[in-house]
Structure formats: C-alpha cells, structure tokens
C-alpha cells in the first residue's frame, strides 16, 4: 500500500522508516505528480512556515487539500498538525485549513522546554506511547466533529476528524510504529482516490 510522506522539509526519513517497519510502501512527495496512486499522506515534523511556503510555491497545497476533501487519509505530526488546522493562533494564515481545530504554535515554550513523556492514545492498544514534543503546538479548540485522542496536562495533543489525523508529538522519532499502523488502517479502510 503506497503511503506518501511530504518531502519538502523536515523529518521525512523517520516517517519513511516507520512506514517500512509496518510493511507499507512509502513514497516521498516533492511534486504534485508524486501524489498519484497514494492511499494516504503524512505531513511530517519540520518548520510549518517553511513547508507551507514550499507547498504553495510548488503547487501542492491545492492537490493535497483536494485529497483530504475526497477522503484520502492525511496524518500531520507537529508542523503537519499546523498545516492541517483551520485556524492558527496569532493571526497567521492557515495552510490546508482542512481540520476543524484551532492550534497554538510553540505552545509548550522554546526548545529547552521540549520534552518526552508517556501518553495514552485512545484507539491505540498496548499501553502508553512514548511521546516526544519538540517546540510542539497544541490544539486550543476542537469542532464538534473532532475526536480527541490524547491530552497532556489538560491540553489536547492528538485529534481525529474522519480521514484526518494529527498529533502534536513525533511518533516517528521512536521505534514504536503503533500510530503509523493506526494510520495505515485508516488508509486501508478508505477507497483510493488519488488519480
């Protein structure tokens, strides 16, 4: 099953490795043509301002938005969550704007405040997940159609809205591929939509 990883900037390789761990067929996406035949797409960690600009410049914003609207599963980690959000605090323009969430960037502080912790994620069995937060965003508001999958100290850090999944943390930085498996199951359950 072909699952794409947006490869403009960020920790692309780590997502590719986790997808390989679960037997999926990862594809690095740099151009619109790379989207053909994908059953899902991961928006990796990185700098959301950089990735957002490059998505616009290289005409990926519209096709990825269309994919999300057509029901193809999208999963954003950290910067990817910001790309998916309908609203970004501080008045910054949204990017894909697909997910009915409002997010605050760098909401846990600067890099010296970055941390890892054990976190239970609803729908992911097998005990808590080692969650790595790096200058991470969190979700400050969720729409009625959004399911909260995890919270940390009262802040929403993992959400799902139908075919869209987002986490503030980076499962790709651990050896634990359960969230990638969870996403692959979403992709398997959906019909292939990218032509």
């Amino acid at each position: 099953m072909r699952i794409g990883v947006l490869g403009l900037q960020g920790d692309v390789q780590e997502h590719v490795e986790r997808l390989q761990d679960i037997g999926a067929d990862p594809v690095i996406v740099k151009r619109p043509a790379d989207l053909a035949g994908l059953r899902g797409l991961i928006l990796p960690g990185g700098e959301s301002t950089t990735i957002g600009k490059l998505m616009r410049k290289y005409e990926l914003l519209e096709p990825v938005r269309d994919m999300g609207r057509a029901g193809v599963p999208l999963y954003g980690t950290c910067a990817g969550m910001i790309l998916l959000a309908r609203e970004i605090e501080g008045g910054e323009d949204p990017h894909l704007g697909l997910m009915n969430i409002r997010v605050a960037r760098n909401s846990f502080g600067r890099q010296k405040d970055s941390f890892e912790t054990d976190l239970s994620v609803r729908g992911v069995d097998g005990g808590p997940f080692r969650a790595v937060f790096i200058r991470a965003p969190h979700v400050t508001e969720v729409g009625p159609d959004v399911e909260v999958l995890a919270e940390f100290e009262g802040r929403v850090v993992a959400v799902r809205q139908g075919n869209l999944l987002a986490t503030s943390f980076h499962p790709e930085l651990t050896e634990d591929s359960r969230l990638h498996r969870y996403f692959a199951e979403m992709a398997e359950a959906s019909t292939p939509a990218v032509q």
Binding site: E47, F133, I134
Partner: peptide
C-alpha cells in the same frame, strides 16, 4: 529531544 530538534531542521 535534543537530537530530534535537529531532525526537524532537515532539508
């Protein structure tokens, strides 16, 4: 966490 920060800068 420290090495991960650099991973996010890749590319």
């Amino acid at each position: 966490v420290k090495r991960g920060m650099a991973e996010m800068q890749k590319g």
